[in-house]
């Protein structure tokens, strides 16, 4: 009946207490690590607000850029951003959803669709500035759209297409297939079935992905600098062929100037940009909540 007691009893009690202390301490460390980035960011955002809020007034929102900080406004940049997002959405949304439908519903699962999927996931990882260079070579130079909103929107569409395709694919994948066969049995064609039995259920998920992609488009700076979106635009762009600037580039421009006032004007513009970004994100969150409820 005797056992080889290789583990001595007494030190184990102390050891256990020590283990608990270590475990508790580590839990707090990980919690701290999880929130510290959010806290730092909150701190900075507070700092930006303090720096910029004094410049936020009607004149700032409706004015044009100026050599004098007190006269500077963001209207051309704001309109440019709105133009850009609308045109980008017009290009990228139909193409993205169509590609997702094809990949999920039509393409035979095989080497080719694997290849396309792999390709899309790699495109999603290409640095945004590379898209800018491609936009410069293809849209600005080769197609001679020049440094227009059109060039910018096409470039941005290429950039966010992979994101839209991937999120739409996921939304389509998540649709339960109990209506699928019933619809086909009623004599509906494949497209009709997709159109009426699949897409409506996938819609909230697709919208979430689209909004997040557009939120990215509104904040992207580097590819637009590369295609030559100018920083100093006093004319409000009226057609897609007009030269333009966007809010992030205006911020970059002001932030790069030596005068202290311009850094504060940049902070004010950041507040506007972040508001737009947060509104888009909040909308996406609402849509996502809807999807989650529906799936449950």
């Amino acid at each position: 009946m005797e056992k080889n007691n290789l583990l001595v009893e007494r030190p184990i009690k102390c050891r256990i207490r020590y283990k608990y202390i270590l475990d508790k301490a580590f839990k707090e460390v990980t919690l701290l690590a999880s929130i510290i980035s959010v806290l730092i960011l909150a701190f900075f955002l507070g700092g930006i607000f303090l720096k910029g809020y004094r410049w936020l007034d009607w004149q700032f929102l409706t004015g044009v850029p100026s050599r004098f900080p007190e006269k500077a406004g963001i209207l051309p940049a704001l309109i440019g951003s709105v133009w850009l997002v609308i045109l980008t959405a017009a290009f990228a949304i139909p193409l993205g959803i169509a590609a997702a439908i094809y990949l999920e519903e039509y393409s035979k699962k095989g080497v080719l669709s694997d290849l396309i999927n792999l390709n899309i996931s790699n495109l999603a990882g290409v640095p945004s500035i590379i898209y800018g260079i491609i936009g410069l070579a293809v849209f600005v130079r080769f197609l001679a759209f020049d440094r227009s909103i059109l060039s910018g929107a096409l470039t941005m569409s290429l950039l966010i297409l992979p994101v839209i395709i991937i999120t739409s694919q996921e939304a389509i994948k998540a649709v339960p297939r109990d209506q699928w066969e019933a619809s086909l049995a009623l004599g509906a064609t494949k497209w009709q079935t997709i159109r009426h039995a699949v897409l409506p259920s996938a819609f909230p998920g697709i919208i979430t992905g689209i909004i997040l992609a557009l939120a990215r488009a509104i904040g992207e700076t580097a590819p637009l600098i590369t295609i030559g979106a100018l920083a100093f635009i006093v004319n409000i762009p009226r057609t897609p062929m007009d030269p333009f600037t966007v809010l992030p580039i205006q911020i970059y421009n002001w932030a790069s100037r030596p005068q202290k006032e311009f850094s504060e004007v940049a902070a004010a513009a950041i507040i506007v940009l972040l508001l737009l970004y947060l509104i888009l994100n909040a909308t996406a969150v609402i849509f996502r909540k809807k999807t989650e409820k529906r799936i449950r």
């Binding site: 900075f44 700076t221 970059y252 850094s263 950041i270």
Partner: peptide, 14 residues
Amino acid sequence: GIPTVVYGYFALYF
């Protein structure tokens, strides 16, 4: 997802 130009501003001014 916060625009990177904002992060750039953090780095430079904070």
